[in-house]
């Protein structure tokens, strides 16, 4: 037999064996055997590992479990740090001129509303405390000017105090 013939026979045999072994590993018997072998290996590992850990612990040495515990804590700390870092970066990336956006507009609307409410309350109190006599036009004008000045001043002061108490740039 020539070398080429022998080689061809060898390759055919190899292909046949390959197909046969692939059928074998796909069989129920092999799958069951694999499962049992894995279960036995796991049990063996568990027994050995537990015994070794006991020996190490009784020698008052840091064992694998202790190192693993520390490693896990470091991992969790790193997870938290990453989340905090992302929050910080998100805040840094936020555009600074928020007052020009919709939020800024709502702030201005709130300020105008606050002024109106304050003006109404102050004017009502003044009217109750000092009801006008309506005896002279000059007094009425003076009273109106006085009330207006007081209302504007009070409204401005109220908003200024409110803005300071929030502590933010708004």
């Amino acid at each position: 037999m020539t070398d080429a013939g022998a080689r061809r026979l060898l390759e055919e045999a190899e292909a046949d064996v390959a197909r046969a072994t692939e059928r074998l590993v796909a069989s129920e018997g092999f799958a069951e055997l694999l499962a049992r072998v894995v279960a036995n290996l796991v049990a063996l590992y568990r027994v050995t590992s537990t015994a070794l850990d006991l020996v190490i612990r009784h020698l008052r040495l840091a064992g694998r479990q202790d190192v693993t515990r520390l490693g896990r804590q470091i991992g969790r700390a790193e997870d938290k740090l990453e989340r905090v870092l992302q929050e910080v970066e998100t805040l840094q990336e936020r555009p600074p001129a928020e007052a020009t956006g919709p939020a800024g507009r709502s702030n201005r609307q709130a300020a105008v509303g606050g002024s109106a409410v304050t003006a109404l309350v102050v004017a009502t109190v003044l009217l109750v405390l000092h009801p006008p006599s309506l005896s002279g036009g000059g007094e009425v004008v003076a009273l109106a000017v006085g009330v207006l000045a007081l209302v504007v001043t009070t409204a401005w002061a109220t908003l200024w105090v409110a803005g300071r108490s929030k502590g933010g740039p708004r």
Partner: peptide
């Protein structure tokens, strides 16, 4: 799949495996 054939049986206890090995 062959993987499914191997592990989709009660005797292949993946829970026991992963409890024993980190």
């Amino acid at each position: 799949s062959l993987y499914a054939h191997w592990v989709r049986r009660q005797s292949f206890d993946v829970d026991a495996l992963t409890e024993a090995l980190p």
